[in-house]
């Protein structure tokens, strides 16, 4: 069984996102362990990009902080290698397509495989352009995680049928960021995704409170939290570790109710 499936095995998955290199690569490694201690089942590592068009202000700022601190793509692979020495938790990259393309698509996935990355999420690579990476990703055994949006409608079938790892259901229109209310009819989206795939479904974008975690983990197989975690890191910087652990515990226990 792939490591990604483990995250959903007999439990609801709490998926935590952080931007690598904010405030430093060493701290990112520590924060990953803290999230795991707090109960995270899968870690999504954001590769910083100069122009993250799918991100709201919180994660945009984290990208800038990371790049200003000198984060390079080579540091990302070193980070993953180090984390892999200590844990078997599934790890996925969130990256923009130019990062992969410029690195050299085949070489990028080879490195993913060698360092221990299980999946990849690319917000600016829709279904129609998947050919850009498909061959390399398959060759090096990296799952391409597909996104489904509130506007996907008739595309759900297309996307879900070819999905790998898990299906990432985008809860709301717009960019990432904390939302007090999510208006999308997620129930019907999740229901139609289930028609076309047995892969687990996780809901992300806007989720930050234990109440939301409880609600959406009942609906799907897991929830993804990004901006709320990055916000903690923005606030507490180097000292974020214990706050991240506490936050993960709070979210995870809400999902057990």
């Amino acid at each position: 069984m792939s490591r990604i499936k483990n995250a959903f095995e007999n439990k609801k998955a709490f998926i935590g996102f952080l931007t690598a290199g904010d405030p430093s690569i060493e701290k990112t490694e520590e924060f990953i362990y803290k999230l795991i201690e707090g109960g995270a089942d899968l870690i999504e590592i954001g590769i910083p990009f100069s122009d993250p068009i799918a991100e709201g202000p919180v994660i945009q700022s984290a990208n800038i902080r990371s790049l200003s601190g000198g984060t390079r793509i080579s540091h990302l692979f070193e980070l993953v290698e180090n984390v892999r020495k200590n844990t078997e938790i599934p790890l996925v990259f969130l990256t923009y397509i130019n990062t992969v393309f410029k690195y050299g698509t085949e070489e990028f996935f080879k490195k993913c495989n060698e360092s221990g990355i299980d999946g990849i999420i690319i917000p600016d690579l829709p279904f129609e352009e998947k050919a850009e990476i498909k061959e390399s990703a398959e060759k090096y055994d990296v799952d391409i995680i597909s996104l489904i949006a509130p506007t996907s409608e008739d595309r759900i079938k297309l996307i879900a049928k070819e999905s790998q790892g898990f299906v990432y259901v985008v809860s709301s229109m717009g960019v990432t960021g904390m939302r007090s209310e999510i208006k999308t009819d997620l129930e019907s989206i999740v229901e139609s995704v289930r028609k076309y795939t047995d892969n687990p479904i996780a809901i992300g974008f806007g989720i930050n409170s234990p109440e939301q975690a409880e609600k959406y983990s009942k609906l799907a197989d897991g929830v993804i939290v990004g901006s709320a975690i990055v916000k903690i890191i923005e606030e507490h910087k180097e000292d974020s570790g214990k706050y991240l652990k506490e936050y993960a515990e709070k979210m995870k226990s809400a999902m057990k109710n």
Binding site: D124, L125, P126, E128, T151, S152, D154, R155, G174
Partner: peptide, 12 residues
């Protein structure tokens, strides 16, 4: 060329 945009925009 191509269409490298988020899924949310694809139908549009």
């Amino acid at each position: 060329g191509g269409q490298y945009v988020p899924e949310t925009l694809m139908n549009e």
